[in-house]
Design a protein around this nucleic acid. Structure first.
Lengths: 227, 227
DNA sequence: CAGGTTATTATGTCTGCACATAATAATACT
DNA sequence: AGTATTATTATGTGCAGACATAATAACCTG
């Protein structure tokens, strides 16, 4: 067989995995052999197999060789767009309303997530889609890390947008969970107790914690992923 | 400067992006120039930049060159392990209980997701962690695609485990949402109305729909992701 | 000057070769 | 027999050179 392009190699390997020519757990031929069989260079086979390994379909180990993953750990990638873009992508007008802005000591959960104990800048705000509440945001900001944010009029400018533009982060950490609506119920204009999808995110710049955010989406919010 | 290894190149590029040497939206030098500057082959620079592009930090276009992404679409990867492994990884005993097994016509939402109208195999079951309800599963299976599943005793063997082992899928589709507990409340042993994290997944083998699952996790479930 | 053609350029990828590295197998030594 | 050392092997990665391809810029031409 003569293939051309590492994508073609990848497709053929996928086909064989799928057709059970190479059942889960079994070892597949080494790169050199495959290169010969497919009529390509070893580097080309390597590219294809590495991509599949990264996708979790193959397990590769030096010397041990390559084998079809027994329990393919499927990785869904959830792209986290800026809310404004997410909303505008649906053809809706985006709106933002700052609800509160204070300096205060954060709840212990937030303190623990950030690894800080001092008082932080605390914002609560509302993201609107076509004038209807879309998500409620509860944010704590480490002003030591981004002192410039104190000079910004956050009533006009979305804190998240300012941060992505001025304080790039190197590390992030997400938790998705579901909660019965508590204090967010009012601003979101919903009944208390409604099930809300909640996203909690902590971001760092290196070792320096920047911000902790909790987004509570309006009921019915669906987060979509593909794999 | 002389670097060695594509990872080192990647790190240096990351550093420059982060240090605002190359601010968002700006074009960075071409591969040949970077290769010369770093004292590596162009292929090495290419490897590094491609990885960063895949991660969403760079936008690359032929001829146009490479520029720092204006709105780095952060991609969180959520690894979807088999529930059994997820539970056992926490050091808890895994349990499985089949609740119902029927053939029936699926709700329109399921019919739409799968693109099928005929009657399907319908299973509801419970996943247990240390004998406590962990998640409620509501599954519809296209028996035309996997007729062998009819020969399996699903009271003993987890349908999901059987499927991953015998019916590899090529495409999947996730939706995460939050719902107030309805019929799941009973089996999960919780109060009706509690906020549940719900994961709906549809899987295909090529163009053939295989199964639709809805997992409702016990209250307090946290789905963790890193980016 | 508009519209189409051609050149240029940066990335995408392949090849063949080389050496590095990790894991295993084989061997030697006590 | 048990342990330490040394091959062997498959993947990981690097290099230089080449051509492919897409997007843009420069150039004609009517």
């Amino acid at each position: 067989m003569s293939l051309s392009g590492w994508q073609a190699v990848q497709d053929e390997v996928l086909r064989r995995i799928h057709a059970r020519d190479w059942p889960p757990g079994s070892a597949i031929p080494n790169e050199a052999d495959l290169a010969r069989e497919f009529g390509v260079a070893r580097a080309t086979v390597n590219r294809a197999l590495q991509a599949l390994a990264e996708a979790g379909l193959l397990d590769r180990k030096r010397k041990a060789g390559t084998r079809v993953a027994l329990h393919p750990v499927r990785k869904a990638t959830l792209s986290i767009p800026i809310l404004r873009h997410e909303i505008e992508a649906r053809g809706l007008a985006y709106g933002y309303r700052l609800l509160t802005r204070t300096h205060a000591t954060a709840p212990v959960a937030v303190q623990a997530a950030l690894g800080l104990t001092g008082p932080l800048l605390h914002l609560t705000s509302l993201h609107l889609a076509a004038d209807r509440p879309y998500a409620h945001e509860d944010r704590w900001i480490n002003t030591d890390a981004v002192p410039d944010i104190l000079t910004v009029d956050l009533a006009v400018l979305n804190a998240n947008q300012w941060l992505v533009a001025h304080a790039p982060f190197t590390r992030g950490d997400f938790v998705l969970t579901a909660l019965n609506a508590g204090p967010e119920a009012g601003p979101l204009g919903i009944a208390a107790g409604a099930a809300l999808m909640v996203l909690e995110r902590t971001t760092w710049d290196g070792a320096v914690p920047i911000t902790w955010v909790r987004l509570a989406f309006a009921p019915g919010h669906r987060m979509h992923m593909v794999l």
